[in-house]
Write a protein that binds this DNA or RNA. Structure first.
Lengths: 144, 144
DNA sequence: CTCAGTGCAAAGGATTTGCATGCCG
DNA sequence: CGGCATGCAAATCCTTTGCACTGAG
């Protein structure tokens, strides 16, 4: 699985005429080991030798080629996670107070209902849906 | 209804020892007339005499007292809409390309399923959910 | 009168970018 | 070798803040 992940990312980069460099591999590795989206500061902690600007630039490129997904909360920092087709489809518990994010999943059945509702909306508008996002907002254990 | 809206907002402000000033009323008015969340530049266009800093400051206060809700997309600007209990429960079509946001609704039945799934997750974690967020991500008519 | 609200201008801070250097292909 | 990637530092730009003034209660 881990090998497949890197192969897939490498492939997507190559298709965009980009290289799978050490820095990029390290970012993907760090994200794949986390069980929640990480902020840039968190990523820099895990990759001490990586300069901030490289982190920003590489994450931006990884996002463009569809290897990574950027998540914005009310927190000051953006968060990054592996693109959804590289992981399991999941949702987020987002703390309204501190912006922290945790992953969670719901039943396949409910997901199917969502997909179908999604398609109906698409029929009525000029909007081309690619995916949905179901988040739970509230207060995390720390902030309660 | 319009009168009720302003009364409610005034009340929430008063409870926080805040006044319902002309600027704040104008912001609420502008948001209530829009059918989608507005960015600060958009609000300033609709309220030419309102300085930027007042917009930021007042929206921040209106958010604190629960009259307004702030929405962050991948766009550069935050967006604001009336708090959900002042409007109708709805969801967002978010353009992944330009960050534009439109409102939409789904069936009550599906909403109930979501609420119930929400409650289940809450039981399994220390997270205290307050509400959910279901967004449709994709490409808007302009960006297609 | 008092003090929250206002508006201008300056500061803050996450993110982006210019440019010289290094290194992969 | 050529060009993308890198890393440092400087610039950008949305947002926040300091401060003196105004106006509502």
């Amino acid at each position: 699985m881990a090998a497949d992940l890197h192969d897939t990312v490498a492939h997507r980069l190559r298709e965009a005429d980009q290289r799978y460099t050490t820095n990029r591999r390290a970012l993907i590795e760090a994200l794949s080991e986390a069980d929640r989206p990480l902020t840039i500061p968190e990523l820099l902690e895990r990759q001490r030798s990586l300069p901030q600007s490289s982190a920003y630039r590489n994450l931006s490129i990884l996002e463009e080629v569809g290897a990574v997904r950027r998540i914005v909360t009310n927190d000051d920092f953006s968060r990054y996670e592996l693109a959804e087709d590289l992981t399991e489809h999941h949702h987020h518990l987002i703390c309204s107070t501190c912006g922290a994010v945790e992953d969670f999943t719901v039943s396949k059945q409910l997901e199917e209902r969502l997909m179908s509702a999604m398609t109906n909306v698409a029929r009525r508008t000029g909007f081309q849906p690619t995916h949905h996002r179901l988040d739970l907002l509230g207060s995390c254990a720390n902030c309660t």
